[in-house]
């Protein structure tokens, strides 16, 4: 199965999904040292986004969140790629400065944590490799 979204930051990635169905704040919501979600309101609290393909509906919170994404990248704890329903300034900027492939326009409610996906961010395509069940 393939989903077609829009390129925000180009590049390719393949890996396991971690999916949140709630808007995500990086500042105060993700530990920049470990990549673990700390946001009390998050449905993936306590889980790590490091090395995974992170999908969520949209970013929220402070624009400083962009720098948290950058810090994750420098520490090797960033997600391999980012998939969002709707891109906004904070996450898009963070992905650009951190050079993390990113696509938007994907209905994340169709995605599940544990699924294996392949992303071609240049064409905006997300391909489902394994259901991960």
């Amino acid at each position: 199965m393939k989903f077609k979204g829009r390129r925000i930051v180009g590049g390719n990635a393949e890996g396991e999904l971690i999916v949140s169905y709630k808007p995500l704040s990086f500042l105060g919501g993700v530990d920049p040292e470990t990549g673990i979600i700390t946001d009390a309101e998050s449905d993936i609290r306590g889980e790590s986004i490091a090395g995974k393909i992170l999908a969520f509906p949209r970013g929220k919170g402070s624009t400083v969140g962009s720098y948290v994404i950058y810090a994750l990248k420098k520490k090797g704890k960033a997600p391999k790629a980012i998939i969002v329903g709707e891109a906004e300034t904070i996450v898009a900027t963070g992905a650009i400065i951190s050079e993390i492939p990113m696509v938007d326009g994907i209905d994340v409610s169709k995605l599940r944590s544990g699924m294996k996906v392949k992303i071609n961010a240049d064409s905006g395509e997300v391909e489902l490799l394994e259901s991960g069940e």
């Binding site: 500042l27 402070s62 400083v64 720098y67 950058y70 810090a71």
Partner: peptide, 15 residues
Amino acid sequence: AGVSYKNIGEAGIEF
């Protein structure tokens, strides 16, 4: 914006 060290932290300085 993004000036106070309380807000931007080490991540901001690094960037």
